[in-house]
Amino acid sequence: MSATAKVRNSSARVVIDGGGLVTLSGGGKRRILYMNTCDQAQQWTTSHCDDQEQPQLTVQNLTLADGNATGETVDGGGGGAMFVRGGRVKVVNSRFVRNRCDATGPDLGGAAIRVLDQSRDLPVYIVSSTFGGAPGQGGVCSNGGALSSIGVSWVVLNSVMTYNRAIGNGANPARGGTPGGGSGGAVYTDGNRFTVRIAGSIVTDNQAKEGGGAVFFVSNDRTGTMSIEGSTLRRNPSAGFETAGFPGIFFLGARKPSVSSSTLT
C-alpha cells in the first residue's frame, strides 16, 4: 500500500473481506489501517466521539503484513497494522505478520492492533486469527507484540499468538533513566475497569523484556478481570517480572485470573 487506509467516520458499517486471498502490506514503512472517531480529519459525527456506536469495522479473511507505526503520535501512537479509537471493531479469520511500532515508550503498543475506546465499553472480538504463527513472523513493539489497549476489553477466541515480542526498556511507569516499555509479549492491557477473555487459543513463544511474556494486565483501580479457558500458554518468558503461579502473565486486578481447562507453563 502506498498510503494508510482510513475509515471515514460517517460510515455506519465497514467490512473489509479478503476472501482468504488478499494481503495488505505496509511495506515496512506505514500503518495499514486507521479508524479514529475523535480525529476531526476523518469527520466528527457526534458530540461524544469517545463513545459512539459507529463506524462498526469488521476485518475478515485477510492478511495484514509489514505494517509499521513507528513515529506515529496521534493518541499516543502504536498499532502497526491497525489503530482503532471509537466505534466498534472485530477481527475474524485473519493473519497479522511482521508488524511493528515504536521500540520504546511506557504505554504505547500493539504491533498488530492498538485500540482505544469502544462503544459502551463493549469488547473487541478477535476470532480464529493468527498473530505471528512462525519464527520471524511475529510482531515487535515497545509493548504488546500483538494486541494493546487502554481501558478496552477483549475476547480472543480460537486464535494463535506466537513469536511476538515486547522490546521496550524500563516498564510503566518508566524507571529512571529509561524510555519505558517492554511488557506484554503478546497482549498489553492497561486502564481501570476492563476484561480480557482468552478461550480456545494458543499463546506460545512470545517474550517480554520486562513483564508478562504472554499477557500484561494492569487494572489501575483493581476492578478488571481476566479469564483463560481451554487454552495453552507455554514458553512465554518474562525477563523482568510476572505474577507467581501464572507463568508468562503479569496481572493486577480484582482477583486472580480464572483459569479452566488450560495449560500454563
Rank of each mutant, 00 (worst) to 15 (best):
V74N: 06
D66C: 08
L62G: 03
I32P: 02
T73A: 03
N36M: 04
F83C: 02
R98K: 15
R85P: 13
C38M: 09
V84Y: 02
C101K: 00
C101W: 00
G77M: 04
G80L: 01
S25Q: 08
T23H: 00
A69P: 06
Q54I: 14
A103W: 07
N99V: 10
V59R: 10
S25L: 12
L33D: 05
G80P: 00
E72F: 08
V89N: 09
M35E: 09
L21V: 13
E53A: 15
T46L: 04
G80T: 02
G77W: 00
V92S: 10
G78W: 07
T46E: 05
D51P: 07
A69S: 11
V84S: 06
L33Y: 03
Q40G: 15
V59M: 12
D75F: 08
F96D: 14
M35H: 04
V97N: 06
K29Q: 08
L64F: 01
T45F: 15
M82C: 05
G77T: 04
G26T: 04
Q60D: 12
G80N: 05
N93R: 11
G27F: 14
R85I: 08
N68P: 05
G67Y: 02
I32L: 11
G77H: 01
V84R: 01
G78A: 06
A81W: 02
N99C: 12
Q42G: 06
L62I: 14
Q40D: 13
T70H: 04
L21G: 09
Q43W: 15
F83T: 00
V59F: 12
A81D: 03
I32R: 07
E72I: 06
V89Q: 07
I32H: 02
G76W: 13
R88V: 03
M35N: 09
G78D: 10
R31D: 03
L62S: 05
D102N: 03
Q52V: 13
N61L: 08
N93Q: 09
R31H: 01
K29F: 05
D50H: 11
G79A: 15
D51I: 07
W44F: 11
L21E: 12
Q52M: 11
L62D: 07
G27V: 08
G28A: 07
H48P: 09
Q52D: 10
R88G: 06
R31K: 05
G28P: 11
R88F: 10
V97K: 06
N93P: 11
R31A: 06
L24M: 15
